[in-house]
């Protein structure tokens, strides 16, 4: 594996019985890249991501994340990635400080290191006055920013973000993306799965999954040129207008059951 690529997937496939959730997808993600992983509900995004973060074994194909093989070294992968999702990010019934300490502990940071990181993080986010408040009482935007910072605590090579900014107000969302740019600038790779097309516009490159396959992969600009449209939303509509309405066909694909 070249030093440059942080994720390499080759013909990665996952089947559930008869149903192929992820159908031989291949792509690479470079160090420090912001990679958007798009698709409709049930297109296979979540399944693909689960394989990449080492919690689901692929049925076929190869993949390496942060230089580790997804089949044989899932534990090493988990140590080298960060994860944040909209559904679960932090414990609402723990305070800001307790959450940071807890997640720092999970990734095996020393107590001293945790204390250092905690002070640094709290001052960076301007949370000094509320560091002893329960996370549940914070506005959504702050929670999401804090969750993102926490996912970076252990200095992971890659951070996986699952629909990170849904429902967040526009200004906080911009702050969030500024944080993402900063992390990417410092060499952290960002892998964003989403079906919100406005999030796609921020990515360096995006892939669009339709029915288990990657149907397009390029920079947002080139994709828009290729499909002769003005927005990623329209690119998506052109690509994903498969015989509607779409339905999940297999287990584990009902990512939208909320």
């Amino acid at each position: 594996m070249k030093e440059e690529n942080v994720i390499e997937a080759d013909q990665l496939t996952k089947t559930f019985g008869e149903f192929t959730a992820v159908n031989a997808i291949s792509f690479e993600v470079k160090k420090g890249e912001i990679f958007g992983f798009l698709g409709a509900n049930g297109a296979g995004k979540t399944t693909a991501m689960k394989m990449l973060i080492g919690i689901s074994k692929p049925s076929a194909g190869k993949a390496a994340v942060a230089g580790f093989d997804v089949y044989s070294q899932p534990e090493s992968i988990k140590k080298n990635i960060g994860y944040m999702s909209q559904r679960f990010a932090l414990y609402d019934d723990l305070t800001v400080k307790e959450n940071i300490t807890f997640f720092g502990g999970i990734y095996g940071l020393s107590r001293k290191k945790i204390r250092e990181k905690r002070e640094q993080l709290i001052s960076e986010l301007g949370l000094e006055n509320i560091s002893n408040k329960l996370v549940g009482s914070l506005p959504l935007g702050w929670k999401q920013k804090l969750a993102f910072s926490v996912s970076l605590l252990h200095g992971p090579k890659i951070v996986f973000l699952d629909e990170p900014t849904g429902g967040v107000d526009p200004i906080t969302r911009r702050h969030f993306w500024e944080m993402i740019y900063k992390a990417a600038d410092q060499g952290t790779t960002i892998f964003v799965t989403t079906h919100y097309m406005d999030e796609a516009e921020y990515c360096d490159r995006v892939s669009i999954m339709v029915e288990g396959k990657i149907e397009a992969l390029d920079t947002p600009k080139k994709l828009k040129e290729q499909f002769k449209v003005d927005s990623m939303n329209d690119v998506f509509l052109k690509l994903a207008r498969i015989p509607s309405p779409t339905l999940p066909k297999g287990k584990g694909e009902n990512t939208d059951c909320n």
Partner: peptide
């Protein structure tokens, strides 16, 4: 339209 993909949102 929260949590629904762009195609369904448009429809």
């Amino acid at each position: 339209t929260t949590g629904v993909d762009p195609v369904s949102r448009k429809e």
